[in-house]
Amino acid sequence: MTETLLATLVSGVVLGSLYALMASGLSVVWTTLGVFNFAHGALMMFGAYIAWTVSEAAGLGLPAGILAGTAGAAFAGVVIERLLVRPFYGNRNMLLVTVMTTLAAMIILEKGAQIIWGARLKQLPRLIDGEVSLLGVAISAHEAILLVLAPAVLIAIWRFTVLTNTGRSLRAVGQNQDSAALIGINVPVAFALAFGLSAALAGLTGALLGSIRFITPSMGAEPLVKAMIVVIFGGLGSLGATAGAAYIIGIIEALLILWLGLYWTPFVLFLLMIVVLVFRPNGIFGGRE
């Protein structure tokens, strides 16, 4: 019994690592631009396909593939910002308009992937073969790398936003655009940067997930929904709250799968999200305002 519980916890933390990478990307764009990017899951998928193309089709190896997937998604993110989001800054209905334009971006990316890469399932190899024992539970070495890599990347981004001028400028723009402009920060550049950084996180997640699940044009849909639940659960604010919520949701999901099975798990997760929205609209870590 304790063994299954431990195994469930470990798989929950693995899930949580993926959600943390996805959700913090979503939250970077939200806190900087006030845009909810529905193409975030599709960017993840795009990163996975680019990684596959570089690693498998071109035969350059998985590390090169992961780098290319991350960079490719970042580039696609900047293009989406430029073409589908920037024209609507200052628009009174910007939030609503960008819901539609980022949904359009999602559909374009998904259809595009289908046309370019076809319908056949693809998969990436693992970074390392073999298994590692964690708390007496055997997990693949690839998942173990994920466990370490996700927090490392998030801590690096957090330090970037706290310590560097460029990182600080992203936070400043999210809090007060006019004040940011008046101290010489180029607001559109900061927006593009936030979008690129966010998309890079999505692409990285996709490239890592491509070794665990099959790569398909619609593979981003479920992670996007999970990232939304995480972001609502943790409150849109600090990276730390988002990451913490990601791990909690990952563990809850793993436990629900164990106790209720796959069928009822999404239902209960959404119920939980609604309960949080009702009682703690700013998330479990957010203040009550």
Binding site: N165, S169, R171, A172, Q175, N176, S179, A180, I183, I185
Partner: peptide, 18 residues
């Protein structure tokens, strides 16, 4: 009100952005 969530010294350092 500048940047509410940012610390005072951080804000001043950032203002030397140009």
């Amino acid at each position: 009100t500048m940047f509410g969530e940012m610390r005072v010294q951080e804000t001043l350092e950032l203002a030397a952005f140009s």
